[in-house]
Amino acid sequence: MTPRDSSDAHDEPGDGPRASRWSDLDRPPLNVAALRRALVREGGLWSSLDVVPATGSTNTDLAGRAGTLAEGAVLVAEEQHAGRGRLDRRWTAPARSGLFFSVLLRPAEVPVERWGWLPLLAGVAVATALPRAAGVDTALKWPNDLLVTVDGEERKAGGILAERAGTDGVVIGIGLNVTLRKDELPVPGAGSLALAGAVSTDRDTVLRALLRSLEEWYGRWRAAGGDPAASGLQETYAAGCATLGRVVRAELPGDTSITGEAVAVDGDGRLVLATEEGVQQPVGAGDIVHLRPA
């Protein structure tokens, strides 16, 4: 799917008429020129930055153009209609209520078997940037959910999806609810920076912080040849992971599940569960349900 221009951003079939992009003064559009000045620079990771009014999925769009783009291309959508999370779950939100963006990475010097750390790396980048940029503590639910605290409860405010792009690229998509209000939440367990008491919900500021943090962590990981321990990634992820120390249920492909205490994230980025049978079982893919504190 290709990005749509502003003329058709108001005519999505089945959605009815939409308000003008200028109608919500609390949600101004991103300042593209200022973002490019701040982020696209000689010797830096980010090679280009484009913002479209609306699209289906920034991941799909960027992956489709990967063959013509340099590493470090960034695509941001003010509104996303077919954003996807894990297990092909839909990710939608009102226009300019969040940050919906994808980046193209080509970690050629890192062994492919270590590329599975990239979505966890993105999670660490977001979780370490948001306290400084927005004053909101963010925890990580393995493997790639971003949690904030709203009224004393853990809520999902964002998610990360990594997909291969050709033979040498990875597209990482990040969706983050910024100013979503309570009556706009798609599900009861959702949250946003605003609902978590953010001191700033300026999306330009937050996006700059996220991309700078992502550049820093990607640089560390790449310089270490993708070694999660040497780069500090494994330790930092574990320190910020709300799943560790919890009793969880891992719902696995094939309609099977494992229940146990999440005790570690191993060198391959897998979640290690200690089961009642005394077995330590690594989980590389699946849906994790937090059941109760350990």
Rank of each mutant, 00 (worst) to 15 (best):
L120W: 08
R222L: 14
L45F: 08
T128H: 11
L121N: 03
G284V: 05
L99V: 04
H10P: 00
L214M: 14
Y218T: 08
E276M: 13
L30D: 01
E79L: 12
D202C: 00
I174Q: 04
G83P: 09
E154M: 14
A162G: 10
T149H: 11
D26H: 14
I160L: 07
I288M: 02
V76D: 01
L121C: 06
F100V: 04
S6E: 14
A63Q: 11
L99T: 04
G98V: 02
A133I: 04
W142Q: 02
A139M: 09
S102R: 08
R220P: 01
S200V: 05
A224F: 06
V170Y: 01
S48W: 03
E277W: 11
L130W: 10
G278S: 05
Q234G: 13
D11F: 13
A127H: 06
R132S: 15
V124H: 07
G284I: 04
R90S: 15
T259K: 10
A285T: 14
R270N: 12
L121H: 06
R106D: 00
E78A: 05
H81M: 12
E235N: 09
L161A: 06
T2G: 15
V148R: 02
V126Y: 07
S192Y: 00
D8S: 15
L207M: 10
G14M: 11
H290P: 09
R164N: 11
A162N: 02
V32W: 11
E42I: 10
A70D: 14
W22L: 14
A285H: 13
Q234D: 12
A229G: 11
R203K: 14
V148P: 02
V187E: 13
L87G: 06
P107C: 10
W142S: 00
L45M: 07
A125E: 04
A264N: 10
R36F: 03
V263W: 03
L291D: 05
A250G: 03
V32S: 12
L210G: 00
E276V: 15
V74K: 03
R222H: 15
G135K: 10
E113G: 12
G189P: 08
S231G: 12
G189A: 14
Q80G: 01
D11Q: 14
D266H: 02
P282H: 07
D168E: 15
D145L: 01
S20W: 12
K156D: 04
E71C: 07
A93Q: 07
G269A: 09
K141D: 07
R292L: 10
E163H: 03
N59I: 05
